[in-house]
Amino acid sequence: MPSPTPSLKGKTCLITGATSGIGFIAARELARAGARLLLVGRSARTADDAARRIREEVAGADVGPLHADLSSQAEIRKLADEVRNRTDRLDVLVNNAGGIFLDRTESVDGIETTFAVNHLAPFLLTHLLLPLLEAAPSARVVTVASGAHRGVAMTFDDLEGRTRYSGWRAYQRSKLANILFTRELARRLKGSSITANSLHPGYVNTQIFRDATWKGRVMRALAGLFAITPEKGAETTIHLASSPEVEGVSGEYFIASRAVGSSLASQDEAAARRLWDVSAEMTGVERSVD
């Protein structure tokens, strides 16, 4: 059994993708630890339902539901505005939302959906919420990556798979991008009160396979056979969000609540800086943390 979550009383935590799977479990446990929770779902209905379920399971839980389609940069900006209206500081930001899109589609912004949701969304949201993170005595940015990042490199000449697309490869590169972003964010925030770490939750039985085609159904069926439970998969997210053991630790990649080595491609500092610059251009980010 995992150790009890350290007290988060008086702290405000925001979690994206918190209506199901490891996001919901992490949200529930952080609320149980006393955190004031801002819970983000793709729709008002799913966010409200998740908040209701947490309140039913955790007596006295302080849960504020929010919703945004994270494939839309306009909705991400609207979400950040709503967060700023609800709190003057943020102690923990968990970038958990993500998906696997087996066929190539584009977001409302004309960006390949996997790259838009899995990488650009946390990149943009983190930037927009930096003033709130800076207002906390110490803050943590936790980004859910994946062991699937191994075996690929960033293809800067075709980041969106316009000339050649594989849903699985796109997912792998988006998870590599999560780690590169985390490392570069940690480098740029060195000496500040904010830390940034990424993690592999394990192969978890969740709703990450959003694809409604036969390929998506096959992937979900396989997940049901071989994956670990969301409760087990959420443990490292909870650890990074709450444990005093990782206070001051930044730029690391965790599996099973331990810092481990990630792929060589994910440690490429030049690639991390280049990805940062490309992402800033694609999101119109004006604020620079350098």
Rank of each mutant, 00 (worst) to 15 (best):
T87Y: 02
I228M: 08
R258V: 02
L38N: 08
T5K: 03
Y203H: 12
P2K: 14
L30C: 08
R42Q: 07
L14T: 03
H67W: 11
A35G: 00
E82P: 09
P122G: 01
R53Q: 13
W168R: 14
N118W: 00
P6N: 07
G41V: 08
A74F: 02
G261A: 10
T195P: 05
M219G: 06
S263I: 10
K215P: 05
R104C: 03
L176Q: 00
D103L: 11
K175P: 00
N118E: 02
A280M: 07
V142H: 02
S43L: 11
L222C: 09
A280F: 01
D62L: 09
K9D: 09
L30Y: 02
T5F: 03
N178G: 03
G233F: 00
L125I: 10
E112L: 10
S146Y: 01
D158G: 12
T126W: 03
V142S: 01
R162D: 15
R36P: 04
A97V: 09
D69S: 11
F101N: 05
V246Y: 00
T87L: 05
D109M: 13
A177V: 06
G202P: 06
N85C: 11
C13G: 10
A44C: 12
S262W: 03
R28N: 10
L132V: 06
A259Q: 03
L133T: 04
T283E: 02
E286N: 10
D48M: 11
V152K: 04
S263F: 02
E134T: 15
S71Y: 00
G10W: 00
R164C: 11
N197Q: 10
F226H: 13
M219R: 12
L14E: 00
V278A: 07
V278G: 07
E281M: 14
I25A: 06
V40G: 01
E184T: 14
D158W: 05
G202F: 05
A145H: 07
G202K: 06
A27H: 00
L102D: 02
P244W: 01
A280L: 06
L133A: 02
E106V: 14
I100S: 11
T155D: 13
G10E: 05
A68V: 04
S243D: 01
R86D: 02
G191W: 13
G251W: 04
A186E: 02
R53T: 14
L8D: 12
L79D: 03
L130E: 01
A80T: 09
W168L: 12
E281A: 15
G60V: 10
Q207E: 15
A139L: 04
P201R: 10
P230R: 09
